[in-house]
Design a protein around this nucleic acid. Sequence first.
DNA 1: GGAGCCCCGTGACGTCTGTCATGGGCAGGT
DNA 2: ACCTGCCCATGACAGACGTCACGGGGCTCC
Lengths: 205, 205
Amino acid sequence: MTTLRLLLADDQALVRGALAALLQLEPDLDVVAEVARGDEVVVAVREHRPDVALLDVEMPGLDGITATAAVRAACPATRVLVVTTFGRPGYLRRAMEAGASGFVVKDTPARELADAVRRVAAGLRVVDPALAAESLAAGTSPLTERETQVLRAARDGGTAADLAAVLHLSEGTVRNHLSSAIGKTGARTRAEAVRLAEQNGWLLG
Amino acid sequence: MTTLRLLLADDQALVRGALAALLQLEPDLDVVAEVARGDEVVVAVREHRPDVALLDVEMPGLDGITATAAVRAACPATRVLVVTTFGRPGYLRRAMEAGASGFVVKDTPARELADAVRRVAAGLRVVDPALAAESLAAGTSPLTERETQVLRAARDGGTAADLAAVLHLSEGTVRNHLSSAIGKTGARTRAEAVRLAEQNGWLLG
DNA sequence: GGAGCCCCGTGACGTCTGTCATGGGCAGGT
DNA sequence: ACCTGCCCATGACAGACGTCACGGGGCTCC
């Protein structure tokens, strides 16, 4: 078996370096590139053409899901393994739709990561079964495009007038979208709707 | 120089194992214990008596700050280095007050961690200068005990009546505390007050 | 003893919020 | 052509929210 060349993307330098140290312990794995931002992933993939790219979801510049799609388009030979802190159902779904080969949460045992990488490199899919079930149960996002935008803008706690100004909408329209989102999420407050949508991974982009 | 014995506490197993791998690369460092929960820290410290304990702040069971105080009380020979994802001013302040010897955010370069551990073990203090300045500027929390509790309870987006039921208070009293907290944080909404207070690290406990 | 702060509660006021009805415009599908 | 769904907007209404004034009780510190 030849050695596998890896790319590592995580915004936290300490975690990134630690993961590199962990993977370098394996004789058949070699970390050839590290990046801290989502928009640096594609250029690094183009330059190094790694066998597997390990991508975090929460990154500045570009989120890991969108970066996954970009990697698949730029270099189909590179498999993507998404490594994230939050096991949100929507993240998993959208990662797989974007062409990821694996999805691992950051509280899986450390010794399993190398095997996950090898399996992904071999063309297999790696997904936590419990998380997969949860993803199926939660289903796809019921929120419309605008509702998602409004909820995203409502995260920092602004008033309806603020959201209207940011989104160039009428204040009444904002409240209508919010009301609809509240109904779909089963919440009773806009803040609760934001929380529930975020927990389901419906607020990406 | 003798080898330093370390304890590692982080709720995410992958990060914990990766940090262990990173630190084991140093010949003079030895990870002798790993725990995933805050309440397991003290028992592990009592059993292994490490030279340095690396503690995350966000942990189930017991937060890293409180765990720091417990470690200092149980084994004063063990120095504490807090390693956290969020560089919130209140975290730093309260960690140092609790007896921590160092405070490092997770996006510091990986190669600096080992040096930070050694410096802490030598009795020095390790603090990011920029973060220290920010902590001084932000000052201590202006929120009263009740205001903090109310803001904490308001995080999941419940109505004032919900908070009143949880905290066994009158609904009007809850709104009074919220109003006061909103004024002190400079916010215009309860949600914004929650966000600002959380960013400052005022919502621990 | 008073002064100060925090706690709890009440009542009232204006504003904001969440909901509904209703309208129009624009895309997609049978 | 029709229906359906999403978008935007308006107006109206009950309820929740944020603010203030005002009480009372407790505590500490001078």
